[in-house]
């Protein structure tokens, strides 16, 4: 478990230290008091990335140049200092040159009210869902994704120039194909592993026997090189790379129908929860490590039936950091310390 957490110049907090309990920890306060920022700090500490924003620059407190987070998990001390020019990580007070030992310590699954975008929103949300998971179970995932994105952005920059030079574009084909094929393979396997877990989680919490199916929708066929070759004319016209993993998607079906078109809002929320529970079950079954669960503004919004179903099916071994505006919804049997946030102050009750 995450025993404690310290923040410095992180979002709205100048300096803050917290000690957590195993099981549930509740953060209560009005909107804008920094509840989500505490969850984000836990995520940044364990994963060196935020569950809600793509870059870390915006995390630095306004007017400051850098932030730092530190904490203790499974008897290891982690520390991360970030400034736009420099990132420093320390594992048990020893500065690290590689991320491997550091990132092995903590896994995170984030539940948020905005998860419904996984079903309703564009494919980018679904790729982020896969990437956030992939980076936590395969140390090669993140470097592969970074290399693919770099090759893609370089290639697109060449396609956008006023006089595209085919020879330079072709020079970026090989890295795009190589890293892209590896990324596709990793994402295909991820969806294969997630599909039965998501279906089971959906059965558990929907309670109505509706079947959830998820399928990988790749942005290229198995013959990526041929796809790229065949798309030359289109990419010159559109001035961007039009095939590849940056077009990957997950198809989500409830009872055989596309969930973004045919499912009700309630059904979509249930699917979103099932997808996130599936993530946490991957860690439980395949990594044998309970993830830290960040549950942001969910319990207060769910109807009592779904709330109870969710509570019953979260991994009991997992530590949970939960935010809400009130505690009125809390059921019997859900015990844990309550942290009240008011004017950047945190009072533990």
């Amino acid at each position: 478990m995450l025993a404690d957490l310290q923040l410095r110049n992180f979002r709205c907090f100048e300096s803050l230290g917290l000690e957590f309990a195993p099981g549930f920890n509740f953060f209560i306060g009005r909107n804008g008091q920094g509840k989500t920022s505490i969850l984000e700090a836990a995520c940044v500490l364990l994963r060196l990335q935020s569950q809600r924003s793509a870059t870390l620059g915006s995390v630095v407190r306004f007017g400051q140049k850098s932030f730092a987070v530190s904490g203790r998990r499974e008897n290891h001390r982690l520390e991360f200092r970030y400034s736009p020019l420099r990132r420093k990580i320390a594992f048990d007070d020893v500065e690290q040159r590689t991320l491997e030992d550091y990132l092995r310590i903590g896994r995170v699954v984030s539940f948020a009210n905005t998860d419904i975008e996984l079903i309703r929103g564009g494919s980018e949300a679904r790729r982020r869902y896969l990437d956030f998971l992939g980076a936590q179970i395969d140390p090669l995932y993140r470097p592969t994704l970074r290399s693919y994105e770099r090759a893609l952005r370089s290639r697109n920059a060449l396609l956008k120039s006023s006089q595209p030079r085919p020879r330079e574009i072709a020079a970026y084909d090989a890295p795009l194909l190589e890293h892209g094929a590896r990324l596709s393979g990793m994402r295909t396997r991820l969806v294969e592993r997630l599909a039965p877990l998501a279906a089971a989680a959906h059965r558990d919490i929907s309670g109505n026997g509706e079947a959830l199916q998820i399928r990988f929708g790749p942005g290229n066929s198995e013959e990526f090189a041929r796809d790229l070759e065949n798309s030359r004319a289109r990419e010159l016209r559109l001035r961007q790379t039009v095939v590849g993993p940056h077009r990957d998607d997950i198809e989500i079906l409830v009872e055989g129908q596309l969930a973004n078109q045919y499912a009700s809002e309630g059904q979509q929320r249930t699917v979103a929860l099932a997808l996130k529970i599936a993530q946490s079950r991957i860690f439980m079954t395949e990594e044998a490590a309970p993830p830290l669960l960040l549950i942001d503004d969910i319990f207060g919004e769910l109807d009592p039936v779904r709330r109870n179903a969710l509570l019953q099916h979260l991994p009991p071994e997992s530590q949970k950091l939960v935010t809400a505006t009130t505690m009125q919804w809390r059921e019997e049997g859900v015990e844990g310390p309550i942290f009240e946030l008011h004017d950047r102050q945190v009072i533990r009750r």
Binding site: S147, R150, A151, S154, A170, A171, Y172, A174, P175, H179
Partner: peptide, 11 residues
């Protein structure tokens, strides 16, 4: 051995 190095090598 990074993306730009690979691309330049190919070129």
């Amino acid at each position: 051995a990074d993306v730009e190095g690979e691309a330049t090598t190919n070129y």
